[in-house]
Design a protein around this nucleic acid. Structure first.
Lengths: 156, 156
DNA sequence: TATTGTTATACTCTATAACTATA
DNA sequence: TATAGTTATAGAGTATAACAATA
């Protein structure tokens, strides 16, 4: 929650200390997720970034190189090399788009989709801290997080 | 919470669907944190990994190179280069440890501590999703997360 | 012998700038 | 002229293997 505070003769919003504390606790959970990625990448013989790319390409969809660059948050020039390596190993395929011959669209291959499924499954495994909560606590946590993220099923 | 399930004639624990859902929601929050780091690094004219190193060295403490490698989760050989660059710019200092002349300990400099404080302050700003919850929801969220993380003040 | 930190090497990811082919 | 993708380049992070100094 944001509180209004006086600061250098202007009203400025700043997060409440409870919000900061909640965020600090969430950040602790983040450690579990971050440590998981390199190990998963090694297991699949991929780089962490390659895992990220495969996660970003839904089977059946066609993703322009440019759009992938935006998703990855990196310069478009990098995508060329990243996709070169993934394509050489048969995880994705490049094709010229029908409507605009400048554009190249990416599709995930069967092999890529298999790796993708493993990545997604692994990332979906809850951190231990979450997993050992009671069902009642988990249910409450879900409801709070849905509200935070604006997935308003019911305002409750 | 873990449920016991029969699987290939062995009892195996697997997370409940509520736990998976909670984890999925938590993972959505991670996006906000992950996108923050590169921008922060650019602003401080540091790399993301250099930011991570500075966060890992508490002012006043002496951190052996080896320990830093474990904290970063990378091979010790990488730490040499990472610290070379940080030391050349005056963010950290290397000194031979008193008790064992093989060991080199790292200390953060005044300049390093200033950058570190900015990094920590920035990371501590709650994601918008968290910040716009009510105080009551935030309080509940904190209690749930403290319980999850084993910060048992009271079992409630 | 074992450990700490370093060096050498090779690969990936990163940004910037210049290029090509299309539009 | 603007845009999509590529290439060239330089720098940072990564792992592996071999090494010197020290324990």
């Amino acid at each position: 929650m944001y509180l209004m505070v006086k600061q250098s003769s202007e009203r400025v919003t700043r997060p409440s200390s409870t919000a900061c504390e909640a965020w600090r606790l969430v950040s602790e959970l983040f450690v579990a997720l971050r440590e998981r990625i390199p190990a998963l990448a090694v297991e699949l013989d991929l780089s962490p970034q390659q895992c990220h790319v495969l996660r970003s390409i839904e089977p059946g969809s066609k993703v322009p190189m440019r759009r992938l660059a935006e998703t990855l948050g990196c310069d478009a020039s990098n995508v060329t090399g990243i996709i070169d390596r993934l394509e050489a190993r048969g995880f994705v395929a490049r094709r010229t788009a029908a409507h605009d011959r400048r554009v190249k669209v990416l599709a995930i291959t069967a092999r890529g989709a298999t790796a993708r499924a493993r990545i997604i499954a692994r990332m979906a495994i809850p951190a231990d801290a979450i997993a050992h909560l009671s069902e009642a606590d988990l249910d409450l946590l879900c409801r709070l997080l849905r509200r935070a993220l604006g997935h308003d099923a019911s305002t409750d």
